Simulated assay, not measured.
Amino acid sequence: MKIRVGFGFDVHALVSERELWLGGIKLEHEKGLLGHSDADVLLHAVCDALLGAANMRDIGFHFPDNAGEYKNIDSKILLARTMELIRSKGYELGNIDATVCAERPKLNPHIPAMKKAMAAVMNVDEDDISIKATTTEKLGFTGREEGISAYATVLITKE
């Protein structure tokens, strides 16, 4: 069995008049994330980690932010296509360990719904997805509530 590890990171600015999408679910918040797509930083970090683990470059290579077809796209579609890409090379997800950094909204109550949404899109068991939430103790752009960042590590396997 071949085992590979990948790491992903993403960040988007928080702005008014945008919906807040994280982990494939919509959260009620006065601001949302700015981006070409729905700007779901968690799903983008996971896509980058998966693509990196499979040595398939990054999310921007496969889904460029200057392509009209991806304007305002639901990042769950990008995640599903990323799974198709890695599976085309014979890889399957082992597990995901992800962390989202945000001062607000509080994310812990939403983690079960995020795991459920991601597992459904990826066609994997919810137990294969770990999502953690943290703040930056009011430090930096995250602490000032200017943006949200996410980190993801994945393990993929090939028989």
Rank of each mutant, 00 (worst) to 15 (best):
E146L: 12
L14G: 06
T134M: 09
K115C: 10
F141V: 15
A49L: 00
K31N: 03
R144E: 13
T135P: 04
S149H: 06
Y70W: 15
D128Q: 08
T99D: 13
G23C: 02
N72V: 12
T136P: 10
I156Q: 03
A67W: 12
I59Y: 08
D127A: 12
T142Y: 05
G52W: 00
A13I: 09
G94Q: 05
K31Y: 02
E146C: 08
H44C: 03
S37G: 06
A67F: 11
D40M: 02
L79F: 13
L85V: 13
C101K: 02
C47P: 03
D74Y: 02
S75H: 12
M1W: 09
M56F: 03
D58Q: 11
G23E: 03
S16F: 10
V100E: 08
G143Y: 04
A113F: 12
L43V: 01
A119E: 10
F61Y: 15
A150G: 11
E30I: 00
G60S: 12
A133R: 00
V5E: 08
D128S: 06
P112N: 11
I129N: 01
L79T: 08
Y91L: 10
A13R: 13
M56Y: 04
N55K: 06
L107H: 09
V100Q: 06
S88C: 11
L43F: 04
H29A: 02
K2P: 06
F63T: 10
H110I: 03
A13C: 13
L107E: 10
Y91G: 08
A54E: 05
N95C: 15
H29K: 00
V5Q: 05
T157P: 01
K76C: 09
V121C: 05
M114F: 10
L27I: 01
L50R: 00
G147K: 04
V154H: 03
E126M: 08
I129R: 00
I129T: 00
A98F: 04
G24Y: 03
P105S: 04
T135H: 10
E84L: 15
D58G: 14
L20E: 04
R4C: 07
E19S: 07
K71P: 02
K138E: 14
L78H: 08
M56D: 07
Y91T: 05
A120T: 07
K115A: 07
E84C: 14
A119T: 01
I3H: 05
H12M: 10
N123P: 06
N108P: 04
I156S: 03
A120Q: 14
I156C: 03
F63M: 07
H44R: 01
P105L: 04
I111T: 06
K158F: 05
K76V: 06
T82Y: 14
L22F: 01
V5K: 06
S88H: 12
K106W: 09
R57W: 14
A53D: 06
G90N: 14
L79G: 08
D128G: 01
H29Y: 10
A13L: 13
D40Y: 02
L93I: 09
V121M: 07
L78N: 11
D38W: 01
I86G: 09
A45W: 02
G68L: 09
L50P: 00
T82G: 13
L27D: 00
N123F: 09
G23P: 02
E69I: 10
L107K: 07
V121E: 11
M1A: 08
D97C: 06
S37F: 04
F63Y: 15
V5R: 01
M118A: 03
A39L: 02
C47I: 02
I73N: 06
